[in-house]
Computed example of a mutant assay.
Amino acid sequence: MYVNTKDILEKASKEYYAVPAFNINNMEFFHAILDGALEKRAPLIIETSEGAIKYAGNGDIFKGARYFVELVRLFADSVDIPIALHLDHGKHFEYIIAAIKAGYSSVMIDASEKPFEENLKETKEIVKIAHAAGVSVEAELGQLAGVEDNVVAAESVLVDPEQAKIFVEETGVDFLAPAIGTSHGAFKFKGEAKLDFERLKKVKELTKIPLVLHGASSVLPEYVAMAEEYGADLGGAKGVPEDQLKKCVELGINKVNTDTDLRIAFIAGLRKFLKENPKEFDPRHYLGAGKKLVKEVVMNRLEFLGAAGKA
């Protein structure tokens, strides 16, 4: 079933669990994620970045957006779990409009690097356009450090809970990503992860809407080790421990973005297969090895975040 992302997240908020949102760039990742969600009987949120849309459309963002909608809807309409398609980190108006026109379930307007009043104004404009088309909207307050696709920030700026309350009331946004100390990419922390749980608790109390955690991959050591055994250079990669993610869910996070974990698992499976099968050149075989590990990561995330069995 192809559904509005808001429907998935409002249920998660009421029942105190989180739904991982998985980024894709191509068909292989989508198949692996879908298979994992079906096996775990879980609701599913698929995400694409602006870069993924441009890539899928071979430079044409409107074709790219339609490609992802048609791919996801083709499979969603034939299964009995709820599936949504979300635009992650929409920073450019034309990409957000392309996603809305194509039929995405939700879009993110990310003006988090701008002053509060400007962020509020831009978000309010996108909410008006998206809601008129039946599309729900995510926004971000505060800023995450790190690098991911078109998102680059040197340092973190944590969310102000009182501003979050005003922001939600004035924009009508459907779900909010508050910055509480995570970061983008595979190298999230120099030392131990330190998330501001009290700040998160306060934001949930004041906004009372589904909340989103960005920069939330765990960077699982077993997949990092496998990738490095077969030639990858990921030294220093460190993510958010699973116990801290569970604590975030207890305090009100309902959508947990996941991208880096999938990429590392995929490259680990791909490198291992190519090393062990030097004569193999069928892409269905070597890409399949990567897909298998992506599915493992997906099922693990669905289980410990509480989404398994919630379809």
Score class of each variant (00 low, 15 high):
85 L>W: 09
59 G>F: 07
229 E>N: 14
116 F>H: 01
262 L>A: 06
8 I>D: 09
207 T>H: 09
189 F>Q: 01
278 P>F: 13
254 N>P: 02
65 A>T: 03
200 L>C: 04
178 P>R: 08
9 L>Y: 09
79 V>T: 13
253 I>N: 02
55 Y>M: 11
228 E>G: 03
161 P>Y: 13
145 A>E: 07
184 H>C: 05
21 A>R: 02
189 F>W: 02
200 L>T: 04
294 V>R: 04
29 F>D: 14
250 E>M: 08
292 K>T: 09
203 V>I: 08
53 I>Y: 09
131 H>E: 02
58 N>E: 15
241 P>Y: 11
125 E>T: 03
260 T>A: 07
219 V>E: 05
208 K>W: 06
208 K>P: 01
62 F>P: 00
115 P>Y: 12
278 P>T: 10
305 L>F: 05
107 V>H: 04
75 F>E: 14
245 L>G: 03
140 E>P: 00
20 P>N: 12
50 E>T: 05
188 K>A: 04
296 E>C: 01
74 L>N: 15
135 V>T: 09
179 A>T: 00
220 L>M: 14
211 L>K: 05
237 A>K: 08
275 K>A: 15
129 I>V: 15
128 K>W: 11
185 G>D: 01
14 K>L: 12
202 K>F: 01
74 L>S: 15
42 A>C: 06
77 D>H: 13
92 H>G: 01
294 V>K: 01
105 S>K: 05
282 D>Q: 11
87 L>K: 10
272 K>C: 09
138 E>L: 04
239 G>M: 06
231 G>R: 14
174 D>E: 10
58 N>G: 13
286 Y>F: 15
59 G>Y: 10
131 H>F: 04
110 D>S: 08
167 F>N: 04
263 R>S: 08
290 G>A: 08
118 E>K: 06
228 E>H: 09
157 V>K: 15
47 E>T: 10
300 N>T: 11
180 I>L: 06
36 G>N: 10
235 G>F: 06
28 E>F: 06
106 S>T: 00
305 L>N: 03
275 K>E: 15
310 K>C: 09
81 I>Q: 13
132 A>W: 04
25 N>M: 11
168 V>G: 01
71 L>A: 13
37 A>M: 12
222 E>Q: 13
32 A>Y: 06
246 K>F: 04
292 K>N: 11
59 G>S: 09
278 P>Y: 14
14 K>A: 14
257 N>I: 01
296 E>K: 12
278 P>N: 12
184 H>G: 05
153 A>R: 12
29 F>T: 12
230 Y>V: 07
62 F>S: 11
204 K>G: 03
226 M>L: 15
244 Q>I: 00
247 K>C: 02
199 R>F: 10
55 Y>E: 13
183 S>R: 02
190 K>S: 13
162 E>G: 00
212 V>M: 04
262 L>V: 08
37 A>C: 11
175 F>W: 09
206 L>W: 10
